[in-house]
Simulated assay, not measured.
Amino acid sequence: MKVLQDYIKATNSHKFDEVRKVLHPNAVYFFTDRNCTTHEEIQAYFENAWSVVKNENYEAQDVKWLYRGSNSATCTYTYFYEGYINGNYTNGHGRATNVFVKESDEWLLIHEHLSPLSK
């Protein structure tokens, strides 16, 4: 779905105002180390990540749509990121779940859950 592509593009802009355009007002994020329940908390988390990992590129790989309805959609995927920490190349990956809802003919992200891949 286009909304996931829009979300990834917004994330890679490294501008939270772009990310905010695809966020539902009640968006909740579950990160490995923290839950964020307001746009302010989500923004702080994103901006901190962007300041640590310079020139970060974020991708969704192996996307599986679990449900696509007229007003909601849920997908899982493997996330992959790469960039530079203190001038040294780094990369990583994990698993993600995103839940989107449609309100007023606009698809918005209401939940994201990121975690490490199970071994």
Rank of each mutant, 00 (worst) to 15 (best):
T11H: 11
S72K: 12
A96C: 11
S70G: 08
P116W: 08
E106G: 05
A96K: 01
L4V: 09
S70Q: 15
A49K: 10
K54Y: 00
T97C: 02
Y81S: 13
L114Y: 06
I42M: 09
A44N: 04
F80E: 12
V101I: 10
R20F: 11
W50S: 01
A44L: 10
D62I: 15
Y81I: 15
T32D: 15
N26C: 13
L117G: 04
T38F: 06
H93F: 09
L108T: 03
T11N: 13
I42A: 04
Y29C: 08
V53H: 06
H111W: 11
E82C: 01
L108I: 07
E41F: 06
K15A: 03
Q61E: 10
V3N: 12
H111F: 04
A10Y: 07
N71C: 04
G94I: 05
Q5F: 14
V22E: 08
E59D: 04
E106Y: 01
K102E: 11
L114I: 13
G69N: 09
H14S: 06
Y84I: 10
P25F: 06
N91W: 07
Y77I: 00
D62W: 04
Y29M: 10
K2E: 14
D62M: 02
L117Y: 11
R20L: 15
T76F: 05
R68K: 15
N91M: 14
V63T: 08
Y45A: 00
P116Y: 05
R68G: 05
N86V: 13
A96P: 01
R34Q: 13
H93A: 08
A96Q: 09
D105H: 12
N88P: 01
N26R: 06
S118Q: 14
F80A: 11
S115I: 06
S72D: 09
D17S: 15
H93V: 03
Y89V: 01
Q43S: 13
